[in-house]
Write a protein that binds this DNA or RNA. Structure first.
Ligand SMILES: [Mn+2]
Ligand SMILES: [Mn+2]
Ligand SMILES: [Mn+2]
Ligand SMILES: [Mn+2]
Lengths: 229, 229
DNA sequence: TTAATTTGTTAGTCATAACTAACTTTTTTA
DNA sequence: TAAAAAAGTTAGTTATGACTAACAAATTAA
């Protein structure tokens, strides 16, 4: 009980760290995640992350041995998922109702996701008629934190001749999202891999009667469903 | 220039203090406002308010002499008005689109008003087609901070026989708002003062074929337009 | 298998924003 | 007008969450 009370009302910072750890743990597949990796992702010094990890461990959200890899407890993961749900619902709202473009929503959603009100997010969900994906193609977890796990295949992992559909993009960088739009790509675009250059791993792709060469870094941030190989 | 940069990105706390001071300065008519009054309104110790006032003075938002009364600079007032605009727009959104009742909106709006995004609030305004009043009957300032000043007459200031219309309520207390709804009062209710008891300043009112006795404290939080005397 | 590098931890500092306790100034009241 | 009360200020403490610098452990390379 006192235990439980200790756990409510996390700070914005605590929430962001839990979300970051969750993203690192799932986005990088089954990768292990260390303190400095978390620090880099959060744009803070290693000491800062270390300090926060200690606190989150003491609160029962994170588990790790000294000098060991970081893991989330079930409770920690549940909080992260709630945050992701809120973040994606707000992004969807901003795009679909408030004329925001997909490169503008992330920063604002990063703030909105911390508003403390269960009713707010659930009513927002209902108001939008329970959308399934956010503007970047990511699945929105439902009120129970359930969500369909879509295996993430990056455009960069495909080989010459393969055809795929753009299903999601990484929303972390505004300049990346602008670039995607500017070269005429969007969610659901059908893309064919024309050529992969071994020299720099750049890729020439074809879509909508258009052909562009993109870097590996670019292709790493584009997620696709393979249609044909 | 450096001066200007120093002034952007106020903390949530600084914003709340500026808003509180603004409310105290206008709501209490032409009253003077002191440090301890501000502290009480903000639910903090006098020392805490004093500390914040110092900071806001150094940033050019507040003016006062030592041991003297507090005033807002034009810039300080402009920030307060922006906050009030955001607060009231969010309250309106919560009520009109997300099924919140008027006693639920204030707490959430208190958080939402601090989200940093000009576009967010202006688009929200447009989405709702530029509402003029919030769910409690308060005027919403426009994007320039302009708003119609409606003289605030409290129900408690009226005399026997007077007839008035309920135009606004103080949204600070959830229990008060619940009480208002429960006895069947709402915005635009037409109220007649049946009797004012000198003993405790309680008032008997009539509205919608119904009669109730309310305390002075209750009547202090109900704002009206006098129709007939 | 030692040395170098990377990774993680600890200690100490700073800013924000709260608190209490002690003090000073102003205002009120007797 | 002098004492009491109220209002305002200052100093010192705490918690959060950053930082740097110094250090320890683990991993990788020579
Ligand atoms: Mn995002
Ligand atoms: Mn965030
Ligand atoms: Mn309100
Ligand atoms: Mn607020």
């Amino acid at each position: 009980m006192t235990n439980k009370l200790n756990k409510v009302n996390l700070t914005k910072s605590e929430e962001d760290y839990l979300k970051a750890l969750f993203q690192l743990l799932i986005d990088d597949g089954l990768a292990t995640v260390g303190n400095n990796q978390l620090a880099e992702y959060m744009n803070v010094a290693p000491a800062s992350a270390n300090h926060m990890v200690k606190k989150l461990k003491s609160k029962g959200y994170v588990v790790s041995e000294k000098y060991g890899k970081l893991e989330l407890t079930e409770e920690g993961a549940a909080i992260a998922l709630k945050l992701i749900r809120r973040h994606r619902l707000w992004e969807t709202f901003l795009c679909d109702y408030l004329n925001f473009t997909w490169d503008e929503v992330h920063e604002v959603a990063e703030q909105l996701e911390h508003i403390k009100s269960e009713k707010l997010v659930d009513e927002l969900d209902r108001f939008m008629d329970f959308p399934e994906k956010d503007p970047h193609g990511e699945v929105i977890p439902n009120a129970k934190g359930e969500y369909a796990i879509v295996p993430k295949v990056t455009l960069s992992s495909l080989e010459e001749g393969m055809i795929c559909k753009l299903v999601a993009v990484n929303d972390g960088s505004v300049s990346f999202l602008k670039y995607v739009s500017e070269i005429g790509l969007a969610l659901s675009s059908e893309i064919k891999i024309l050529e992969v250059r071994a020299f720099d791993n750049s890729i020439r792709i074809q879509y909508d009667e258009r052909s562009e060469a993109v870097t590996k870094k670019f292709a790493d941030n584009v997620f696709v469903h393979v249609i044909n190989c």
